[in-house]
Computed example of a mutant assay.
Amino acid sequence: MRKELEEAYGFLFEKELLDEIVENGTIKTASAGDKIIEIGEYVTGMPLLIKGAIKILREDNDGDELLLYFLERGDTCAMTLSCCLGETKSEIRAVAETDTTFIMIPISKMEEWTAKYKSWRNFVFESYHSRLSEMLDAIDAIAFLNMDERLMRYLRDKAKINRDETIHSTHQQIAYDMHTSRVVISRLLKKLELDKKISLQRNQIKVIDL
Rank of each mutant, 00 (worst) to 15 (best):
H129C: 13
L18E: 09
E87W: 13
T76N: 12
K28D: 02
I174P: 03
S169R: 06
G86D: 13
R153H: 12
G40R: 05
L85S: 00
L68D: 11
T26C: 10
T26Q: 14
H168E: 15
D19M: 01
A94I: 05
D140E: 14
Y42G: 00
L66M: 11
F11A: 15
T98W: 07
D140Q: 10
A94M: 14
S119N: 04
K118M: 11
V183P: 03
G45R: 00
L200R: 13
K109G: 00
N203P: 06
K55E: 15
K191C: 03
S199Y: 02
K118G: 03
R150M: 04
L49D: 03
M147R: 15
R93A: 15
E7P: 05
S82P: 01
T88A: 01
T101K: 11
L194T: 15
L5M: 08
T114D: 00
S181D: 06
Q172C: 04
L18N: 04
K116V: 09
L145Q: 14
E14M: 05
L81K: 08
R58H: 08
I185C: 07
S133R: 12
M135W: 02
G74A: 06
K28W: 02
L189F: 06
K116H: 05
N162T: 15
A78H: 07
I36A: 08
N203L: 04
D148I: 14
G33R: 00
D164L: 09
V124Q: 05
N203F: 12
G10I: 02
T98C: 10
Y128S: 06
L12E: 13
A53V: 00
L132H: 05
C77F: 04
A115R: 11
L188A: 06
V22E: 15
K116N: 11
Q172D: 11
R73I: 07
T88H: 07
A94Q: 11
E134F: 12
I56T: 15
I36P: 00
Y154N: 10
G45P: 02
I54Y: 02
M46W: 03
K35W: 03
C83W: 09
K3C: 03
K191S: 13
G52Y: 02
K116C: 04
K116S: 06
E111P: 02
I37A: 11
N203I: 11
K28R: 13
K89E: 05
D34K: 01
K190L: 13
M152N: 14
E112A: 09
F144M: 10
A53N: 08
I208N: 14
L200E: 15
I107P: 00
V183I: 09
S130Y: 08
C83H: 10
Y128P: 06
V43W: 10
D148G: 03
D177T: 10
S130N: 14
S181I: 08
S133P: 01
I161P: 05
Y176V: 12
G52D: 06
E111I: 12
